[in-house]
Write a protein that binds this DNA or RNA. Sequence first.
DNA 1: TTGTATGTCTACAAAAATAGTAGAGTTACA
DNA 2: TGTAACTCTACTATTTTTGTAGACATACAA
Lengths: 148, 148
Amino acid sequence: MITQKAKYALRALTVLADADADEPVMISDIAAQQKIPKKFLEQILLDLKHHGIVTSRRGKQGGYLLLKPAHTITFGEILRIIDGPIAPLPCLSITAYRKCDDCDGEQTCEIRHVFAKVADATRKVLFSTTIADAVGPRHGAEVTRLLA
Amino acid sequence: MITQKAKYALRALTVLADADADEPVMISDIAAQQKIPKKFLEQILLDLKHHGIVTSRRGKQGGYLLLKPAHTITFGEILRIIDGPIAPLPCLSITAYRKCDDCDGEQTCEIRHVFAKVADATRKVLFSTTIADAVGPRHGAEVTRLLA
DNA sequence: TTGTATGTCTACAAAAATAGTAGAGTTACA
DNA sequence: TGTAACTCTACTATTTTTGTAGACATACAA
């Protein structure tokens, strides 16, 4: 299961993707529109900002904006920032590898083999799907692909 | 990430699959062989017993045995028992479906679409791989396939 | 230049999940 | 009848999740 926080992050990004590229969207608006606790969303967006996904303007007329086009932001990227490793085992993580202390010999660990397949399959989906794909039929890569 | 408990369960089952089909294996032996805390393993095996995966004999010469052939026990089946739903969202779970209270309209929820693909991909792997596949090159379905 | 609307940052806290431990009980065999 | 095994329930420490609280910084506008 992904966390509630990750779901909030993805939904918030779709709101930003849906807005005009130069029009900041206020935290309160995103929170209201997606039914996300406002103070919680603040933290999430700040985190995304620190990771270079979004940017913000302060003061009146302030708010958040995407820092790069929606079709270049993948689900996998966001999940890694918010929830941590995609891999089902620490010893299979690309970004946070850690040796399993109980299994000796990664080449021969059959459980690892199986979950390596799982990790590959989920990565394939998560890193080939973008926020643009999630924003509906009127923007982004999905449409591009359909028209191609 | 799968839990430590699930990893213990899978490892314990491979030990049983490796043993003679009529020779009970003691909890202590499994625990020692796989470096699993004994009292924790007791709970895990009991849980698997209650779910019809293994059976046991009490008293001297007692221990645990598989209740069905190793090549009929899938990884997915075990993960469901120990860790709960495979699906990354409650609204995608087959065994524990629960409506997302924030998303209105499952047909139109694009986040759901994406994670439905993830769920399908992981299920495909987890329910096509069995304990026999994990027990090494000398038993079960893997060998059968290689020889075919 | 001051008020107010916005984002920023850190700390705290309640609830749930995880990873065990403890110990009394039950059963089967010798 | 003793003892070696499994059975069951309860408890606990730690970590993660899901927030809340509040002081602070900044930008615009009157």
